[in-house]
Simulated assay, not measured.
Amino acid sequence: MVHEDLFARLNEAGYKNWLKAGYCLLKVKDGLCGYTDSEMRYFHNTLIKSNSGLQRGQRCRNDCRPRGNQFEYACPLCNEWRREILRHHTKPGGVINWGNCRPCLWPTEHWELAKAYMPRGLANLSRADQCDAAALLNLLNFCDHFSFINQRIITEVIRSRNELMHSCEMQVSNEWMARFQKSLEHLLLTLQHVPEVAAARQQIQEMLSVDLSLHIPGMDCVDGDSDMEVLIESISQCETELLRESLKDLLSNSEVEGNPVPLERMQNVHRFLSSHRDLEEQFRTELQSLRVKETEQLKGVNTDSAKR
């Protein structure tokens, strides 16, 4: 069977929950993409119309850019955009990822404005459909254009997403799934008027109601069932995307100074991928990067021990 290794993983209850939750987040992204794009286009136009210093057609003449994540020196136009971003930020005193943005494009590109309200590491993205669920959820949380949504609901979904991505064993309990499903339902109901969100909610409900392991006891039942074949193929694609996102989080966070990823987490992820032939082959490049990071951390630990 093509998906024999996946079938074995799906019979692990915790991993099946992890995959289902990841599928839900992918559908949240699908539901939010078009909505956040059109809303930020409207928000961008509203700022231009309401602020004489931002009238359409003006251009940054200095090619202003952040230095790392700092953006303190800019031309008058970019400074005005910076003030507007802060004015509409729900946590203006917190960390704002200016490094995501190309300020010289703020006058013309609404998504460059959106990225100021998102997590770091999105400098190379220019469209809503390139963003993951975490980026779009942070936009809803930190831009006051979406203040009609209860922030507590959004932060609960973000917290669950982070727990899912940072799970060393790629497993979550039934109790965790129940809490996640409840917080997700609250958020999706708030945006039920958006057709794409309503469709995503329906797909999420359908997935959460399926006990995937019940379909896979003999591993041959899928051959004659085209609907099940489609479902398993969809789960396989979801697994790939979810693992890739988790690895991206892991590898990028390991580069943040002062906040290294725990060595145990890297070793557990490495062990998990290496123990499954299909995943080891599929994520060969990422595994190599993970080995390098592990070696660097081990050297650091040994150096610190020697100094003592």
Rank of each mutant, 00 (worst) to 15 (best):
D144V: 01
I149M: 12
M207D: 00
E84I: 07
E80V: 09
P103M: 06
R83W: 06
K115D: 06
Q181M: 11
N174P: 00
G93H: 07
R87C: 04
V197Q: 10
R120D: 13
E206L: 03
Q205W: 09
N79K: 15
Q202G: 10
A199M: 11
G121N: 02
R120F: 10
R179N: 13
S183H: 15
L214C: 08
R161T: 06
D132W: 06
R127H: 13
N138E: 14
M177L: 15
M207I: 01
L137I: 02
W176S: 09
D144Q: 09
A178V: 10
H186G: 05
E72D: 14
W81K: 12
S213C: 03
D211S: 15
N100I: 07
E80K: 15
C101M: 04
I154L: 01
E80N: 09
N150A: 07
P107R: 08
F142W: 12
R87S: 10
A116H: 03
L86G: 06
M165P: 01
Q151Y: 11
E80C: 12
L187A: 02
A135L: 06
H89G: 02
R82P: 01
N141A: 15
P107A: 12
N124A: 11
D144R: 09
A123S: 11
A198H: 09
D144F: 07
R83C: 05
E163Y: 13
D132A: 12
A198W: 00
P119R: 14
H110V: 03
L113A: 08
Q205L: 09
W111P: 05
Y73L: 07
L184F: 06
G121E: 04
L113P: 08
E109R: 11
E112A: 04
R87F: 03
Q205D: 07
N100S: 10
N174A: 13
A135C: 12
E169A: 11
H193F: 13
